[in-house]
Design a protein around this nucleic acid. Structure first.
Length: 572
DNA sequence: GCCGTTTTCGGCCCGACTGTTTTCAGTCG
């Protein structure tokens, strides 16, 4: 297994944790954390950069020191200072940081005074009343730790954005009915359309005197109230999702919305610019000295700093601030730009509805075409089509199209890419179709080399038009298969094979970073639902969210084209 | 540990809530 960026990031993050527990300079800790985050964001394989002799100090936040350490990690999986630190601070301590209410200072104190290194030891120490006697700890803290340990309270659980959406909407509606409440907006990673969210951040403006927090903590699905003040409250829902609510004055609404939309890294970048201009930004507004000069509208935050408005999906400090300053922000794709869906299933295989029902539903969603791309014969479990059933389907589609007005059903297949890189149906049959979507549904565990060769070979087949869910990940459940994404993107550019952004909220594959990498390399994307039922067309919104996070514009996405242009441009 | 139109040292985003204190440290976002 090759060392990936995420492996290097994990090692740097561990160092940051241990340094923090050891009481190191917080800015030094931040340097490690920033470096770890940057590695996850750049969309370039650092190991390959090293092999190519590239200068790592040109990466943001990487100086001579960290560059050397990253090289060492890439070669050995660790670095000498971390090994030294592990001898000084037991690495198991980092697990205690996951306990709610325990941060590096307290974990360090528990270790130094009581020698605690595991949650079991911590549990016993609390039971014996030893923890409450430590300076800085008390009875309440001890009880909180015990409760957290007993309920196995984890703050690290994440939820698919589509899972969080019904809760976000329900809480929004609930709060809007509270007397005196004027505005309710769900901010945070939900507003940035991140593929998974750790919590919900809700921003409220209300008449003076009304107290939305009182009702917020009584929302029916609340399990625990973590904190409740006059302007801020936090609760945990029955499904363990944390929800934070913040009440602000109207005059601060814009600044607060920007602040609570984040990301943290984006906010820091914005505040640095303000600082250079002698201004101060906080969640209440933009200030010159004590004078508030803006804050009611979110747009004013950018305007005052001389920046173009940055859409929430871009706010990750991945270059959007610089692009905004120089007028180079992308014109992000919107849901309305989509004209069709090129990956739709029917009851011919594992879909729940007939071709005509899927077509009618797509039409009702405002689409002008869909491609019926059912499974091929290899996928027995899904009743995959052989050549003759596929040709029957082709006949049915021809008949349906004869009676369609202003809508086209394209003839397609989601053909299995077999282990050797060949396609699961003969070329003569595939050539009868309007387009061919290829996908991997087996042998996920091939070696990196073999998996890459398999995909590249499939892309060499001129029948193939679209590579479906290219990395094969299932969010929160299954990692992507191991292959060389850079090579596949390069091949997509050369071969004109389109890469799919699968809009199913469990997949969202390609992800944001790869979408952007593909766009910059000159590859084209198709945003497809992979719908197995009529209800799944609504998933296009999650695909659009991820596409926008990947800086995609309408021209990068082929199913924004009218059907004629689409058919012309998909030809290889 | 990084960084530089206050450039090789001295900064590094900012504030709310809690609990343990009696003015503040720790945690969290």
């Amino acid at each position: 297994m090759q060392v990936q960026n995420s492996d290097i990031a994990a090692v740097l993050d561990e160092m940051a944790d241990l340094l923090e527990i050891d009481g190191a300079n917080p800015f030094r800790v931040r340097a490690y954390r920033n470096a770890a985050r940057m590695l996850l964001d750049i969309g370039k394989d650092v190991r390959e950069m090293i092999e190519a002799g590239e200068d790592l100090t040109r990466l943001p936040g990487i100086g001579k020191d960290l560059a050397g350490k990253i090289v060492e990690i890439a070669q050995t999986g660790t670095f000498s200072e971390l090994e030294e630190m592990r001898r000084k601070v037991p690495p198991q301590l980092t697990e205690l940081l996951d306990i709610a209410g325990l941060g590096p200072k307290r974990v360090g104190a528990l270790y130094r005074t009581l020698g605690i290194t595991s949650s079991e030891q911590l549990f016993n120490a609390c039971k014996d009343g030893k923890v409450s006697k430590l300076p800085g700890f008390g009875k309440k803290t001890e009880a909180k730790i015990l409760e957290a340990l007993q309920t196995k309270f984890t703050t690290t659980q994440r939820f698919l954005i589509a899972e969080a959406a019904p809760y976000a909407e329900a809480i929004r509606k609930y709060l809007l009915e509270v007397k005196g409440v004027r505005q309710v907006v769900v901010a945070g990673s939900y507003r940035r359309r991140k593929e998974t969210v750790g919590d919900l951040d809700i921003l409220v403006t209300a008449e003076p005197g009304s107290n939305p927090g009182d009702l917020f903590v009584r929302f029916p699905k609340v399990r625990d109230v973590l904190a409740k003040g006059s302007t801020k409250a936090s609760v945990v829902l029955q499904n363990s999702m944390q929800v934070d609510m913040r009440v602000v004055e109207d005059e601060s609404f814009g600044a607060c919305l920007h602040y609570f939309t984040g990301s943290k890294a984006h906010n820091i970048a914005i505040r640095k610019i303000a600082q250079k201009m002698g201004l101060k930004i906080n969640e209440y507004g933009i200030f010159r000295g004590d004078e508030r000069i803006a804050g009611e509208e979110e747009g004013s935050v950018f305007e005052i700093l001389g920046l173009d408005y940055i859409e929430p999906e871009l706010r990750e400090n991945r270059g959007e601030v610089e692009a905004s300053a120089s007028g180079r922000l992308p014109q992000l794709i919107t849901l309305e730009d989509l004209k069709g869906d090129l990956h739709v299933h029917s009851s011919y295989t594992d879909g729940s509805a007939s071709i005509s029902t899927m077509a009618e539903t797509a039409k009702a969603y405002g689409l002008k075409y869909i491609a019926i791309a059912d499974h091929s014969r290899r996928l027995r479990i899904a009743n995959g089509l052989d050549s003759s059933s596929l040709l029957k389907q082709v006949d049915e589609i021809d008949k349906l199209n004869a009676n369609m007005k202003g809508f086209t059903i394209l003839k397609a297949i989601e053909v299995d890419i077999l282990e050797d890189g060949s396609l699961d149906l003969p070329d003569e049959v595939l050539k009868r179709l309007d387009l061919v979507v290829g996908a991997i549904h087996s042998k996920f565990n091939l070696s990196r080399g073999k998996q890459t060769t398999r995909i590249l070979k499939a892309m060499d087949n001129p029948c193939l038009n679209i590579l479906a869910h290219p990395t094969g990940r299932i969010l929160l459940r299954r990692d992507p298969y191991d292959f060389d994404v850079d090579a596949v993107i390069k091949k997509a550019v050369e071969s004109k094979v389109v890469l799919e952004l699968n809009a199913n909220p469990h997949r969202l594959d390609l992800n944001d970073v790869y979408c952007r990498q593909a766009k910059e390399a000159g590859a084209r994307i198709a945003i497809n639902t992979d719908a197995h039922s009529p209800a799944e067309f609504k998933n296009l919104m999650w695909g659009i969210g991820q596409a926008r996070r990947g800086w995609l514009e309408a021209r990068d996405v082929i199913n924004t084209f009218p059907v004629k242009k689409l058919m012309k441009s998909i030809k290889r």
